[in-house]
Design a protein around this nucleic acid. Structure first.
Length: 418
DNA sequence: TCTGGGGTCCTAGGACCC
DNA sequence: TCTGGGGTCCTAGGACCC
């Protein structure tokens, strides 16, 4: 059976979201920053042209940003998540089978569309733009890896204008040749270096590499990548993503923290947030690992982690918060400038399959009702009800100095047309 | 002064078993 | 002095992704 995949990828997604509600930003250099306004995580084409790399620390390029009047925004995840939902909903109309791959990408199954794939791609591009305001690129091919590659070329090539079909294309060899090996899906920096050292420079070279050597050097993933470049599909469309295996809430602080009670507040806050995510997924956690760390960029470094095992898997934030603060007592050491804390939930099981231990006395039904009520209240506003352990002022809180309004999810922040 | 966050999969190696 | 072989399970860490 022949396969046909489209990869639809939003262009400069976070920047594009900001532009939808602030059209004055069109054709101007714009960046979106990571948490704490630390790194550049989304760049407009104008900024890419300035040579500012993805993931660059903002303070390192401050001069260039100022000189070119670059508009900078803090990450507005609420807005981006909502816009992502709109894009995905639009895409769902174009295929009976879709895999949401990330916040700004989806694979569509295009086998059996009954019209030229490139034309269909144009329709997708046009419709998403019209319905959501977000520009997208579409790459089409017979495997996911080739669809990713087609998408990459579609974005850059003026001739493709955002849509490229490589399935049954006479230009496939040419396309493979012009993509550097490190730009192939599944090839990162380390693997690219090794490949380059072996004289494998572009995707075409990789598609013709010796499979035994690849297996020995890079394992089964490497082999799959090579096959996928040869148009042999190894990665099927994953329509129903399996349950999450881990849930992480981890943040850098807005300033360094030395006191144990501030670390406790932070870890309690993250544990409560992790609990919300957990319940949203309908899961319960068997284990929780709490970690603290100093900056990676200083001499006097410290990192430690403590793991709590819950005898009965839990989705009760009270239990998570309590365990989190207890963990901090175990791993806190005086005399360090802490810069980050994190909570990792693992051993996740669906709530309905939770095995209770013989000695479990907790009233889980009651806790469940309490959590549902809590979540419902907090969904309406921003953290209306909080755990006392989280603290009130949160002076350590991650910074977002350039945040745009929650245009689409809060009545009081709707854009006003005058 | 300032350097993100949230995930997955695979492999190697140790513990343990027969 | 001799000191197997194979299997499973678990964990840590590497590599990748966006």
């Amino acid at each position: 059976m022949t396969t046909l995949f489209a990869l639809v990828d939003c262009n400069n997604f976070y920047v594009s979201c900001e532009r939808v509600f602030n059209p004055g930003l069109e054709h101007r250099p714009v960046v979106v920053l990571s948490n704490n306004d630390g790194c550049i995580v989304s760049r407009s084409n104008e900024v890419k042209a300035l040579g500012i790399g993805m993931g660059k620390a903002a303070f390192e390029v401050r001069d260039i940003l100022t000189r070119h009047h670059v508009e900078a925004f803090s990450s507005n995840y609420t807005l981006y998540a909502d816009m992502s939902g709109r894009v995905m909903q639009t895409l769902a109309d174009f295929s009976p089978a879709m895999e949401v791959y990330s916040i700004d990408e989806a694979f569509l199954d295009l086998s059996g569309i009954g019209q030229p794939p490139a034309d269909y791609g144009r329709q997708i591009q046009h419709t998403v733009r019209q319905w959501t305001g977000i520009p997208v690129s579409v790459g089409i091919a017979s495997t996911k890896t080739l669809a990713k590659l087609a998408n990459k070329i579609a974005k850059k090539s003026p001739k493709a204008a955002g849509v490229l079909n490589l399935a049954d294309s006479p230009f496939l060899t040419q396309a493979l040749q012009r993509v550097a090996v490190q730009d192939v899906w599944g090839v990162g920096l380390r693997i690219a270096r090794k490949l380059n050292a072996a004289g494998i420079m572009n995707a075409l070279d990789l598609s013709r590499a010796d499979i035994g050597w690849i297996r020995g050097q890079f394992g089964v993933q490497g082999v799959r990548t090579v096959y996928e470049l040869q148009a042999i599909s190894c990665y099927p469309l994953e329509e129903n993503p399996q349950d999450k295996k881990t849930i992480i809430v981890s943040r850098m602080f807005g300033r360094s923290v030395t006191a144990i009670d501030e670390l406790m507040e932070a870890s309690a806050t993250y544990a409560a947030r992790a609990g919300e995510k957990l319940r949203q997924e309908g899961l319960a956690a068997g284990m929780m690992s709490v970690s603290v760390a100093t900056s990676r960029f200083i001499e006097h470094r410290y990192y430690n982690v403590h793991t709590t095992v819950f005898p009965t898997a839990t989705f009760d934030s009270a239990e998570l918060v309590q365990a989190a603060t207890a963990s901090i007592e175990r791993i806190y050491r005086e005399g360090f400038d802490y810069k980050r804390a994190g909570v990792l939930l693992h051993e996740l099981t669906p709530q309905e399959y939770v095995q209770r231990t013989l000695f479990d006395t907790a009233d889980r039904a009651r806790a469940g009702r309490l959590m549902r009520t809590l979540d419902a209240i907090n969904r309406r506003g921003d953290c209306t009800v909080r755990w006392a352990a989280e603290g009130i002022d949160k002076p350590w809180h991650t910074q977002f100095k350039h945040l745009s309004p929650k245009f689409t999810t809060r009545w009081d922040q709707l854009p006003v047309v005058s």
